Amino acid sequence: MIIKKVLFLISILTTIAFTTRDSIIKSTSVIITPQSSLKVKGTTNVSDFSCVFNINKFKNPIQVFYHVENGKIVFNKTALVLENDCFDCGGRAINNDFQKILKSDKYPQITLFLKEINQTENMRDVQASINIEIAGVTQDYKIPVKVKKSNDLFISGDLVIRLSDYNLETPKKLFGLISINDIIKIDFQLLIREK
């Protein structure tokens, strides 16, 4: 009877060992260096605009939790928080408009949740799955990302989103003659250093 119990326990432990071998949660912390850039670009029916995030305002270091599962790097509770008031669109009036569009009085942050990355052999061109929360609404995206590794990790890419997907309304200027287009582009080039 005892031998059967021991064999049963060994078989359970062996099964757990083989099924969780690749899914052990690891953690690290990273710093987004000042050489990085993050911009939100948009257009109006009159001109283009660009809102630049102040990279020095990132709350470094950023904790990263991940495990490997079926050839993917899966992230747990890994988020990049952007304070809305750290964007500079080039002038007080457009900065105020940008804050109103994002409903910053009620939702002062944009949060990017990193979900998973599909690994490739060279890890240069990967696909990242992320969730973006703006003004209390979360949307899922899959985006191609370029990765270069030397001493640090350089990650670059861009993502096109629609303001209407987040229930955001753009202000109208000069009796409705100037309006911001619904589609905006997030352009990022992040130089990341492991702490």
Rank of each mutant, 00 (worst) to 15 (best):
K5A: 12
K5Q: 08
L7D: 07
S11H: 09
I12D: 14
L13I: 03
T15L: 15
T15R: 00
A17P: 01
T20N: 14
S23T: 06
I24H: 10
V30K: 06
I32E: 04
S37H: 02
T43D: 05
N45P: 05
V46Q: 12
F53Y: 09
F53T: 05
N54M: 09
I55D: 10
N56G: 06
I73A: 07
T78H: 00
L80H: 06
V81S: 02
V81R: 04
E83T: 12
N84T: 13
D85A: 10
D85M: 08
D88G: 01
I94E: 01
I94H: 01
N95Y: 09
D97G: 01
F98V: 02
K100A: 08
L102S: 03
Y107H: 15
I110W: 02
T111F: 03
T120C: 05
E121N: 08
D125C: 10
Q127P: 03
I130P: 01
I132S: 03
I132R: 01
I134S: 05
A135Q: 10
V137K: 15
K146N: 15
V147F: 00
K149T: 14
K149L: 15
K149Q: 13
N151M: 07
I155L: 14
V160E: 14
R162F: 12
N167T: 05
P171W: 11
L177N: 04
I180D: 11
K185Q: 10
Q189W: 02
